[in-house]
Design a protein around this nucleic acid. Structure first.
Length: 880
RNA sequence: GGGAGCUUAGCUCAGUUGGUUUAGAGCGUCUGCCUUACAAGCAGAGGGUCGGGGGUUCGACUCCCUCAGCUCCCACCA
């Protein structure tokens, strides 16, 4: 096959991806082989590919392709997540742009729009993953809200309800006034936010509801909530405030009377020591309210606006109201002072709205028992977190977990299967039919019309925690007595999970809980937590900063293989990645290198009459050993999830060892034929290298593998076996390494003296070199002869290990310069020797240190002595 | 406020139970090369007292303490 002078990734990539699909290379069915299973962290159904996905899915694909080539039955299940709040807010925004308000629609109408949106935009991201080369089993593509998976979610709810772990209650929850839903604690992000501390005067009541001239001062960050105040609270031990005992104070502006109460909760040395208690709008205040039987007055509506109970500023947004009420308080003489103040404020993860603590009825899942078991799964090592520093974080979270608020006031998602009866009772059943049956057991007169289903849907994570189970057997979760189907029995538990640490609790921990609950075992063995992709300056990638490159553009420009390699280059687990396009350039350059090396090799002509040159024989033997050793290293890296190390080892093996050394040695002179032994070995090495690289760069390796020799239709490098490491001779590798260093020394002399590489030089070596590798020095050093001993007269010399090498160079050598160089080297060696001898002279060292260490020091000593002697001789020779 | 982690060459990072490492890699930098696979390349070179200080040890990048800086997670001082 004729090769283009340049590698053209886009042509090649589309061709092979189509080929793989056509031959169903990614599809897996249970068989007798060992399974290797991975489920994709399902991206949002309407999402588009960003660099984080690229990193994650590249890693996933490398692991999957590697496992496949190791002979395992690899199965990577793709799919998408319905992402209830994210998708719903997108649909709401789209409708708004069309002049349609969600409130004007019925639930059914809205869902119709949402499904339309999903059909239109859903799954784009899965097509984008194909561009990256992801070898997902597309026949198994799942969606968390497809009917079967939704059914699984509903039965899961029923399962936990009947187990008594799910309850409904009025609690202080995190309310998102933009998303118009409650969110879980995990979906609240606390950010330090600059605000003000307002010191307000509350006048003491004269007992007749009128203000006296005495007052106390409270400090608050939320003056707009004073209308909802239920009390003023002080610490009972605070003597400054004893005079307030039993008094009542007047809320400014609205002149409502509230009591002064005492509670230990109040810190004496914070603020003024007086706390305004607003049970409806602060979680602690709510607790205090419960203890003291205070009324709850909710003055903020779902949108974050003051309602009519506030009496004043009705209809104003909470932040507008804050500004206005400050002015009003000032005018009324109640504002004592304003301080600058920075405090943590909770924001909604999805909408970035400031979270409003709000009292409402929600569904919760009890977490204690689930968390305890999930903690054990990690502590016992059943599930490994990589890197393991996340174990600490994980433990901390699991030991301090709160009940999970699982209801959302949204429509896009699985609707809670709770049905309210006219008598106030509630039945929880998987279907309306079953619910009716249950209801009729309570009262046979009930009809379908008597049942009112809960309006809320479930948190997205309440469906995605089933993912590793439900993608294989959707009916399974929550069904007592249900036997796992063939797929689930074979593929579960999955092997590795690659995901970001940001969803360790949202998703990973909860999958472990669900796995334990429904399968009685872990959902995966290893969790590889990637870093977050940041820009060169360490900033998170975001649309507003415009620092987030479009992966598809990059793939178009550099090729998918280049993008994959670029991302992996700096992907040590858990470390954030500072993305820079130059990494992808490096990937592209590597593609070019691979391509060109095959152009060279494939262009050689072979003649059986040619005998194998001695340097080629040495090179073949050396590379064979080197290959084995490197494969061993690479396997070790993979087994420890050190993907970038594995990649770098392969990269250097190909570029440095194979191209720069091996090919340069065996390369025949221009126009000359090559012997067949060397040629066959060279091609064999090349093919093995392609197989080693394939998991990382699937496209170019497939292309060239087909170029090596014609393959049958359907054959692919994907199913070739990973090259195995054979035994290798370290002593031979060392001997070759010595020769390599001699060559570098000779080249160094040329560079320094500006002697053309074409001019052959004589080389003197004083010391022992394996005769096998001498021809290598001759060829790559362009040496006319290698003689033993030292070059007399003017010569450039260098030391390799304990070898003294010299190149006679009449007329090229500046004696003084050469002498200075040698002398500085001599001084360095003497210092080094002194250091070693000091160590060896220390009785404690010799008696305490292990023998091997002492032996090493002795070797260092003798080597240094040899070098010093060699340098001395070189100096002597210079003086002649 | 609590917890975890990080600080090694210009940049990004390795350094695996303290001694075969007189501290490594990739990229970048510098010098010389259009050498008939590749200038997206080839050859060569320079570059770090391992954040500061103290300690343990025969021996510390590696263990302990302390200080400084950075990052992340958790958290209800209004």
């Amino acid at each position: 096959m004729e090769l283009n002078a340049k590698y053209n990734p886009s042509e090649v990539e589309d061709k092979w991806y189509a080929y793989w699909l056509k031959n169903r290379c990614f599809h897996s069915e249970p068989d007798s082989r060992e399974p290797y299973t991975v489920v994709i962290p399902p991206p949002n159904v309407t999402g588009i590919l960003h660099m984080g996905h690229v990193l994650n899915n590249t890693l996933n694909d490398v692991l999957v392709r590697k496992a496949r080539m190791d002979g395992k039955n690899a199965c990577w299940v793709p799919g998408t997540d319905h992402a209830s709040i994210a998708t719903e807010s997108k649909v709401v925004a789209k409708l708004k742009a069309q002049g349609i308000s969600k409130e004007d629609l019925t639930r059914e109408e809205f869902l119709k729009h949402a499904w339309e949106w999903k059909e239109e935009h859903g799954g784009i991201i899965l097509n984008q993953l194909r561009k990256l080369g992801a070898s997902c089993d597309w026949d198994r593509t799942r969606f968390t809200m497809e009917p079967e998976l939704s059914d699984a979610v509903i039965s899961t709810f029923c399962h936990f309800y009947k187990k008594g772990l799910i309850y409904r209650g009025v609690r202080m929850v995190n309310w998102d006034p933009v998303g118009l839903t409650a969110v879980s604690d995990e979906e609240v992000i606390h950010k330090d936010t600059k605000s003000h501390f307002y010191h307000l005067r509350y006048y003491i009541s004269d007992g007749k509801g009128k203000a006296s001239d005495k007052y106390l001062v409270i400090a608050t960050t939320r003056p707009e909530t004073i209308m909802a105040d239920a009390a003023i609270c002080v610490n009972p031990a605070d003597e400054r405030h004893h005079w307030l005992k039993g008094k009542k104070v007047i809320i400014p502006l609205i002149n409502r009377e509230i009591p002064v109460i005492e509670d230990d909760y109040v810190e004496m040395d914070f603020g003024t020591g007086c706390l305004k208690v607003t049970p409806a709008h602060d979680a602690h205040d709510y607790e205090i309210g419960l203890r003291h039987n205070l009324p709850v007055l909710d003055i903020i509506d779902d949108h974050g606006r003051l309602n009519e109970k506030a009496q004043i500023l009705v209809g104003e947004d909470r932040f507008e109201a804050r500004k206005k009420i400050v002015k009003m308080l000032q005018d009324a003489g109640n504002l004592e002072k304003i301080e600058e103040y920075t405090s943590p404020v909770g924001y909604s993860e999805r909408t970035d709205a400031v979270i409003e603590p709000k009292l409402s009825a929600q569904w919760f899942l009890k977490m204690d028992a689930l968390a305890a078991r999930a903690l054990d799964s990690v502590e016992s090592g059943e599930v490994k977190l990589i890197p393991d520093k996340y174990r600490n974080t994980y433990r901390h979270w699991m030991e301090n977990v709160h009940d999970w608020c699982i209801s959302r006031q949204l429509w896009w998602g699985q609707r809670i299967p709770a049905y309210y009866l006219p008598d106030g009772q509630v039945v929880v059943e998987e279907t309306p039919q079953k619910a009716l049956e249950a209801a009729q057991k309570i009262n046979p007169a009930y009809t379908a019309a008597s049942l009112r289903q809960d309006e809320d849907v479930l948190d997205t994570w309440f469906s995605s925690w089933l993912w590793p189970i439900s993608v294989f057997d959707p009916a399974h979760p929550g069904h007592p007595g249900h036997r796992p189907n063939a797929d689930l029995s074979y593929y579960y538990p999955t092997n590795d999970l690659v995901t970001g640490p940001d969803i360790l609790f949202f998703w990973v921990a909860r999958m472990i809980m669900a796995g334990n609950e429904f399968m009685d075992r872990k959902p995966f063995g290893n969790v590889y937590l990637t870093g977050i992709v940041r820009d060169k300056l360490g900033r998170k990638m975001s649309k507003t900063l415009g620092n987030s490159p479009d992966p598809l553009e990059l793939i178009k420009k550099y090729g998918a293989d280049a993008v994959r390699l670029g991302m992996l280059l700096c992907s040590s687990a858990g470390n954030d990645i500072l993305y820079d396009e130059s990494m992808i350039e490096q990937g592209r350059n590597f593609c070019g290198k691979i391509w060109n090396s095959w152009r060279l090799v494939s262009g050689w002509s072979v003649c059986d009459a040619v005998k194998q040159p001695s340097e080629a024989r040495a090179a073949v033997k050396w590379f064979d050993n080197k290959l084995s050793k490197t494969i061993e290293t690479v396997q070790d890296h993979y087994s420890k999830f050190r993907i970038s190390d594995a990649l770098m080892a392969v990269y250097k093996l190909f570029w440095d060892d194979y191209c720069s050394w091996y090919l340069e040695i065996v390369k025949p002179a221009y126009g000359q034929d090559m012997d067949s032994a060397t040629y066959d070995a060279t091609v064999d090495f090349f093919e093995k290298l392609l197989k080693l690289i394939h998991p990382i760069m699937p496209f170019i390796t497939e292309e060239l593998w087909h170029s090596i020799s014609p393959r049958k239709e359907g054959q692919t490098i994907m199913f070739e076996r990973s090259p195995k490491a054979g035994p290798y001779r370290q002593d031979f590798l060392d001997a070759f390494e010595l020769a390599r260093e001699v060559v570098i020394g000779v080249r160094g002399v040329r560079a320094q003296k500006q002697i053309s590489p074409r001019e052959a030089l004589r080389l003197f070596i004083d010391g022992e070199v394996s005769p096998e590798v001498l021809p290598v020095i001759v060829k790559l050093g362009n040496v006319s002869s290698i003689e033993t001993g030292a070059a007399g007269g003017q010569a450039a010399s260098f030391i390799v290990g304990t070898l003294k090498c010299s190149v006679p160079l009449k007329g090229f050598v500046d004696t003084a310069e050469e002498k200075a160089k040698l002398e500085s080297e001599l001084e360095y060696q003497r210092k080094f020797l002194a250091g070693v001898r000091a160590k060896l002279g220390n009785v404690n060292f010799v008696s305490h240190a292990p023998e091997a260490v002492v032996a090493t020091e002795r070797k260092k000593e003798s080597d240094a002595l040899a070098r010093i002697e060699a340098i001395g001789e070189a100096l002597k020779a210079l003086e002649q």
